[in-house]
């Protein structure tokens, strides 16, 4: 082959290649290797749990859960870059902390959020509030981050990161924070050789009868009614939910927290005034204080409480401890992805 012809062909191919490459770069800005082909993620909840409603606009995907988990543990989400969701919601404490924030446990079945129910709706609504108003997430930081633009594209097919997309990803991860493998759950499922001790069984009876009458607010398989009550904590109660609703009937009403993993989530009450479960049970037994909006479900209000015996109190606490889910707090799929 003559050198002239060789060079002609060589440069021809080269320029052709370069040309192609240039065109490609121009059409698709950063992330030419990005793909949007999300894989559906199956949320596995115990059969005894209620029907789970997932908003149509935010189906759970492997990519969305992965992104949500990273955002949950990454301080980049906070405008100060110092705190992540996980700073106040640590896994070893069943996703709560001291001072007490409501634990991120089985929130997928909630329709109102925060102690005073400031946000109502789906997880997407509360997560949007957290990102936009509480964390004041700086979207520029995420958009200029070396990893996140690609992860958002893979999860949502979007090149522009928004507060709404952050909320969607966080919601998808939150839906996987399911605690349903406690000893109590295994007993309900009829697992061989797993049973409640006599003390736990007696505590169960106290819990689920009007003897202790815990179940009207903390009952059902989720151990919360997702509602608001003044539980006779103070003679002059805080505004609590009334600050949101402006309804004087809501003075002193706070959300019933789930009692799943209650052994791990102290200190207790919305302000963390009780360090131990013993103090909490003593309060319900002897410490009730009358005020105008105390819930009618505090049936023994006029007696100051349920007046349980020492044995009954310790049996009740034994039952409460059967709700501890050690698999949940050890689940590596829920732990920080940064190591």
């Amino acid at each position: 082959m003559k050198p002239a012809l060789f060079y002609l062909i060589f440069f021809g191919i080269l320029s052709g290649l370069l040309g192609c490459k240039k065109d490609h770069v121009e059409n698709v800005p950063p992330g030419q290797d990005w793909t949007y082909d999300p894989t559906p993620f199956e949320i596995k909840a115990p059969a005894s749990f209620p029907i789970l409603n997932i908003p149509v606009g935010n189906p759970t995907t492997v990519e969305g859960v992965k992104l949500g988990r990273m955002l949950y543990y990454d301080p980049v989400l906070h405008s100060d870059s110092l705190r992540a969701c996980a700073s106040c919601h640590s896994q070893e404490r069943s996703f709560t902390s001291d001072p007490p924030v409501l634990p991120h446990v089985n929130l997928a079945w909630n329709t109102s959020f925060l102690w005073n129910g400031k946000v109502e709706g789906a997880l997407e609504d509360i997560m949007l509030f957290e990102v936009k108003e509480f964390f004041k997430t700086d979207l520029e930081k995420l958009q200029n981050h070396q990893d996140y633009p690609k992860l958002f594209y893979e999860a949502f097919g979007a090149r522009t990161i928004t507060h709404e997309l952050c909320a969607k990803a966080l919601s998808q991860f939150q839906r996987t924070l399911i605690s349903g493998k406690s000893k109590y759950d295994r007993v309900l499922e009829g697992t061989n050789w797993v049973f409640l001790t006599d003390e736990e069984l007696n505590g169960f009876d106290i819990f689920f009868t009007e003897k202790g009458d815990c179940f009207h607010c903390h009952g059902g398989i989720l151990f919360t009614d997702n509602s608001f009550h003044n539980n006779a904590l103070d003679a002059s109660p805080e505004p609590a939910r009334s600050a949101i609703t402006s309804n004087p009937a809501d003075v002193g009403k706070f959300k019933s927290p789930t009692l799943r993993n209650i052994e791990l989530t102290g200190p207790y009450m919305h302000d963390g005034r009780y360090e131990t479960l013993e103090e909490v049970v003593d309060f319900y037994s002897e410490g009730l204080k009358t005020s105008e909006t105390v819930d009618p479900l505090m049936k023994s209000l006029h007696l100051g409480g349920k007046h349980l015996t020492t044995q009954e109190k310790s049996d009740l606490i034994a039952f409460l401890k059967s709700l501890t889910d050690t698999a949940f707090i050890a689940d590596t799929a829920l732990a920080s992805p940064f190591h």
């Binding site: 005894s48 209620p50 329709t111 059902g220």
Partner: peptide, 15 residues
């Protein structure tokens, strides 16, 4: 009844 949170909140769990 269907396993909804509303129905669960109405459960009558007395042993």
């Amino acid at each position: 009844l269907p396993n909804t949170t509303t129905n669960i909140n109405m459960e009558w769990p007395l042993p």
